[in-house]
């Protein structure tokens, strides 16, 4: 099985780094994501290593890194599925004290938990860190951060934080 040919059958947007055995499939339409994921899974990529985002000024790239345990040929290959979504404009609100609160709305992408259940915790992490709502995730809650950080999305580049003065009563 030639992995390069198989992958280029699935998607034409394939970035290959042969020296490092890294392959990256770039998905341009959200509706295609689950179909592409299913065909990748049928090739033998059976688990998700990491789900993460990369924050850019106007967009967020969501990356699923998948790998294989069951297929002897695919064990040494890293495959990334990347999808880029546009960020909505932040909403600025002025409250009664005159402070400006910047509300940064989350973005939405399809969830791949139905394809790879191993991504269930990683997708929750990406949700709290980047504000990526995974549509179709069965249990999308905050995983690590306490309630102080609801809606702040710490790993976005425009995250600013103020340590609250009173941590504990």
């Amino acid at each position: 099985m030639n992995i390069k040919d198989e992958l280029s059958k699935i998607s034409t947007n394939l970035v290959i780094d042969e020296k490092r055995a890294n392959y990256k499939i770039i998905i341009d339409e959200p509706s295609k994501l689950i179909d592409v994921a299913n065909s990748i899974k049928n090739l033998g990529f059976d688990h998700v290593v990491s789900v993460t985002g990369v924050d850019y000024p106007d967009k967020i790239e969501v990356i699923w890194h998948v790998s294989s345990y069951s297929s002897e040929e695919l064990k040494g290959i890293d495959l990334a599925i990347s999808m880029t979504v546009k960020k909505p404009e932040p909403l600025k609100q002025t409250d009664a004290q005159g402070n400006i609160n910047v509300n940064r709305p989350p973005v939405t992408v399809p969830s791949l938990v139905s394809v790879w259940p191993s991504g269930i915790f990683s997708e929750r992490e990406a949700f709290e860190m980047f504000g990526i709502i995974f549509d179709g995730h069965p249990d999308l809650r905050y995983l690590m951060l306490p309630e102080d950080f609801y809606g702040t999305w710490p790993l976005r580049k425009d995250f600013t934080y103020q340590k609250p003065k009173v941590f504990i009563e």
């Binding site: 059976d46 345990y69 069951s70 064990k75 040494g76 790879w116 191993s118």
Partner: peptide, 25 residues
Amino acid sequence: DAIRLGVVGPNLRASGVYYDTRKHH
């Protein structure tokens, strides 16, 4: 199930999956 859930390391190998990053990467 170990494959499906994506567990790693000695726990994965205890379930019978032959996978070690030292061998495969």
